[in-house]
Write a protein that binds this DNA or RNA. Structure first.
Length: 463
DNA sequence: AACATTCACAACCGCTTCGTC
DNA sequence: AGACGAAGCGGTTGTGAATGT
């Protein structure tokens, strides 16, 4: 069934376009493999269909996405995940390819920058809607960080409702503009702390005013203290915008887990991985900012605390807690925890981590799963099986697997998902070296280290 | 000016789904 | 029921323009 296209490839010429248009005009759409036979076009049917659908269709709307369309895309992605065709069906004149490209470039740039993709209320209104399996929010995948281990659709999240679209509009009144900010520009204008790149971006494009249409926003964007009040207070996003970490945009912690797009504000850089992988660092106020966004953080608190963090701490943080990371990391964390607790040889160098683990009862992880997953969801099972594989490799006991599977099989929620999420988050962010009471910024491990650890590689001693 | 890098977009590839026989 | 072909879909790659060094 493989459609082998021995025919011409590459960009279409206008002559080819004309032939195809003429053919479709006479014969209608469909039966694309017949195009080559009957029109003399040296293109395979698949290519013809794609060309027609993406470029030649008369009802196509060309040009840039309007702010409304961008907003709609964000909304639809939260709702549908990477279902580009379905999203395109909701956006007349737009193609799945167009939307996909848009998302993969502009939107993911926000992820890399550690900026939120979804407005906070979009994430706060997470409801479990098991009867509507497709209508879920997918966690944006992490491939922009070099982690292609899991596709976003494997992390389907509960139904997102958009009850506060009015407020949402407020957020997006600037976010689409931010989408147009090249990372380097953001870097040079105060977002530099969000780009833990060992090699800073080289391009500095245009003035910020070209990209930002925020009220009263000036090119002093670099200086957070220069934010004008109207902007700062216009929304939960805004209220935190003047802070130094990404979650300060009002994105809740749970949502950050969904977004999985967090970069360290000022994490020390030790290698190329740090350029690609997000660091799950959160300042202490962030939890409050989710539960109560009005609590203003100390602007540079996180940075300071981080700067003061000894390097060894960072290394140890590669064994991580899944507070905000989501399903995968929670599973990895559990595996890591179980493994670490048995690893005497690393005991000393992992004191911090083990202490942290001791402070974090299994309940935490369970709660996190309850908040985010449906035990019947494929993602849970796939995660469990993935863990099963890893634990097998690493020689973990069946008890461990059972334990994790019991975690994954979350049931019996008495509270609403939102309530659960908030209260659980509070549990998660409890005191401790990674908690919210010490101003210490959370750190996300280098994923490969975690995987290596799962696979039995003794990374904790390697630092 | 030459080269390197980044970005956006178009096109392709491989897999899945659907319809027909 | 299953084989087959067509179409759909999502991920990935290729390419040229823009920009920076």
């Amino acid at each position: 069934m493989r459609e082998s296209c021995h025919l011409k490839k590459g960009p279409w010429t206008s002559a080819e376009d004309a032939i195809l248009v003429d053919y479709v005009r006479k014969n209608g759409e469909g039966n694309w493999n017949a195009v080559q036979k009957h029109s003399g076009l040296s293109r395979c049917g698949k290519s013809c269909r794609l060309r027609w659908a993406n470029h030649l269709r008369p009802d196509l709307k060309k040009g840039m996405f309007t702010p409304d369309e961008e907003r709609r895309i964000v909304e639809l992605h939260a709702k549908l995940g990477n279902k580009w065709a379905r999203m395109a069906a909701e956006l007349p004149g737009r193609t799945d390819n167009e939307i996909k490209n848009f998302w993969n470039t502009r939107i993911k740039r926000l992820q890399r920058a550690g900026l939120p993709i979804y407005p906070p209320d979009m994430c706060l209104q997470v409801n479990i809607s098991p009867e509507e399996g497709h209508n879920v929010a997918s966690m944006p995948n992490q491939d922009s960080f070099g982690s292609n281990l899991f596709q976003s659709d494997a992390f389907e999240l509960p139904h997102v409702e958009f009850e506060n679209l009015e407020l949402y509009q407020q957020y997006l009144s600037y976010s689409p503009e931010i989408l147009n900010i090249p990372p380097k520009t953001m870097m040079s204008h105060g977002y530099g702390h969000m780009f833990p790149m060992s090699c800073p971006p080289k391009q500095l494009q245009g003035s910020v005013s070209n990209y930002l249409s925020m009220p009263n926003q000036s090119s002093d964007f670099a200086c957070v203290e220069n934010y004008d009040e109207p902007y700062k207070s216009s929304s939960p996003y805004d209220s935190d915008f003047s802070t130094n970490d990404q979650s300060s945009f009002g994105i809740p912690h749970g949502a950050e887990a969904l977004l999985s797009s967090n970069f360290s504000p000022s994490e020390p850089l030790s290698g190329p991985m740090n350029m690609e992988l997000p660091s799950y660092q959160y300042s202490d106020y962030q939890q409050d900012s989710w539960v109560n966004p009005s609590v203003p953080p100390s602007l540079f608190e996180s940075d300071d605390s981080l700067i003061q963090s000894p390097p060894t701490k960072r290394a140890k943080s590669d064994v991580f807690k899944p507070q905000n990371s989501g399903l995968l990391e929670a599973v990895l964390y559990e595996s890591q925890k179980l493994k670490s607790s048995k690893d005497d040889s690393c005991q000393q160098s992992s004191t911090l981590m083990l202490d942290d683990v001791a402070d974090s009862p299994p309940k935490d992880c369970e709660l996190e799963f309850e908040a985010h997953c449906d035990s019947n969801s494929p993602s849970v099972h796939s995660a469990a099986s993935a863990l099963s594989e890893h634990t097998h490799v690493s020689g973990s006991s069946s008890d461990e697997l059972q334990f994790v599977e019991s975690i994954l099989g979350c049931n019996g929620m008495d509270e609403t998902p939102n309530q659960m999420a908030i209260s659980q988050l509070d549990d998660f962010l409890g005191p401790g070296p990674f908690g919210h009471d010490n101003g210490c910024v959370r750190e996300k491990p280098v994923v490969t280290d975690v995987i290596a650890t799962l696979l039995g590689e003794d990374t904790c001693c390697g630092y």
